[in-house]
Amino acid sequence: MSLSFSANAWHVLRGNPATLAGALICGGFALLAVVGPWLAPYDPMATSAALSLRPPSAAHWFGTDQVGRDMLSRVLVATRLDLGIAISATLLSFTLGLVLGGAAGWLGGWVDRAVGRVNDTLMAFPLFVLAMGIVAALGNSITNIIWATAVVNLPFYARVARAEVNVRREAGFVEAARLAGNGSAGVLFRHLIPNALPPMMVQVSLNLGFAILNAASLSFIGLGVRPPTPEWGIMVSEGAALVLSGQWWAALFPGLALMLAVFGFNLLGDGLRDLVDPRRRT
């Protein structure tokens, strides 16, 4: 099974350069998240009045910002925080969605109706507006951006999990497992949940890009991460005023990093969708 899957994956990647590129970009950023702080040539927090707003040069590849901090170091170091927020948020929505959706699909009845109602309500807001409202309500912290991003994505996972569990609840192999003496929990966790995982993993990779974007957007408008912490959204926001006077580098490089990371995860997610379910490609 695993051999045929990897063979299949290679086949899809080879015939699909876009997905391959996505996988490479994601791998690159994952690596940067781990080794970024060691690669950074300068201290990302060290300010220097003498080095204020230097354009990109051999000494400072990405230039320096208003207080003379090295942009390359800041962009590199920020990778871990940005990816960390997105991954934590996605894991949270994945877990919560699996539990809620699984319960709704398996138990049916009022649990199903209640979960459905919550999903409908959460989806009745423009995602970013709801995320903004949640962070404003819970308070301005990194933990709360993670929660807000997780909550606005929750319905997507809960729906997939519910549908996958519900559609197989009466299937032959589930009946067989039950007749073989497995308890309710055993059937659910050993036979139904594993079948729900592939489509949920696709959702994860599609969502990671959105989660990165959502968290950086919240920071951009001043919610969540606070300066002087290096984070892509804040750095773009700090560089925004300088663009009008022609100092483009302070906003360009963090923005490019953000864009490239989101692009990579979106390409990969698209490709994974083809891999797991070729019929669903639209």
């Binding site: 560089g239 925004a240 923005g255």
Partner: peptide, 24 residues
């Protein structure tokens, strides 16, 4: 690829770059 790039563009960032290019 083009449309995926579009959806990956943070609107606030593309806005800034458009300002730099077309205004500055």
């Amino acid at each position: 690829v083009i449309t995926t790039a579009g959806v990956s563009l943070p609107a606030f960032f593309s806005g800034l770059m458009l300002i730099f290019l077309f205004y500055y």
